[in-house]
Amino acid sequence: MKDCALAAYSWVCERTGLDQVWTALMERHIPEAKGWVGLLYTLGSATMMIFTVQAVTGFLLATNYVPSPDHAYDSVRYIDAAVLFGRVVRGLHHWGASFMVVFAVLHMLRVYFMGSYKYPREATWLAGVGLLLLVLGFSFTGYLLPWDQKAYWATVVGTTIAGQTPVVGAWIANILRGTDGMGAPTLSRFYALHVLALPALTAGLIGVHLFLVVWHGISEPPKRSPGKVP
């Protein structure tokens, strides 16, 4: 029995390199960060965990949501009132959106104040800024989906502001809204962005971000430069 399991394990390892991947990812060493400074280093993984919550609850919501002005509002009401745990799932997705912003920003502040973006981790920082922008993109496109008063009018304001960009403004507003004023094309575009384009881009960029973190190693907690301390 034991031999059999061992044989299966070595079969898998030979074909996938699982053991080496495990060593490279899980047994890599991390510079020591003690006490509350060590806790600050968990903010990035917390952000990723919330992203997972958003992906799962987002999938569950999408199974009952209808992205059309005629049915969007009613389908959200239906989720709240009739779907098993629907209200909690929508609550999780709603609060998760705020949590994403909060934790992404806290993580960024940790990196900023510790100067962790310095050589050789400049590209990691750029990927992080890209991820923050994607989070804001999620929040902007997701806000419209319930098709209630707040959703509708906040998006009117948002797309109007985008339309005021010099030179390309009218073009951008047109692409976002898809029609004069706002209507069915706006809602389907925002929905497509929210559930297809943005998740794909985010997953890709998270991949880049994490690869760079592993490649360079996580930055060590900063020490005061020796000249200044008496």
């Binding site: 806790l39 968990t42 903010l43 993984s45 917390a46 965990m49 919330i50 919550v53 002005p69 509002y73 959200v76 009401r77 709240d80 209200r87 909690v88 799932v89 929508r90 609550g91 999780l92 997705h93 709603h94 609060w95 998760g96 949590f99 934790f103 319930p146 098709w147 209630d148 008063q149 707040k150 959703a151 509708y152 009018w153 004023g181 706002m182």
Partner: peptide
């Protein structure tokens, strides 16, 4: 930390569910 965050998230989702205003009226 993830479990702690998740607990707070669930508590908020349960006790303060997302609001819904009246249907959009252009």
């Amino acid at each position: 930390v993830a479990l702690l965050v998740l607990t707070v998230l669930f508590a908020l989702a349960y006790y303060r569910p997302a609001e819904l205003e009246p249907l959009a009226d252009p």
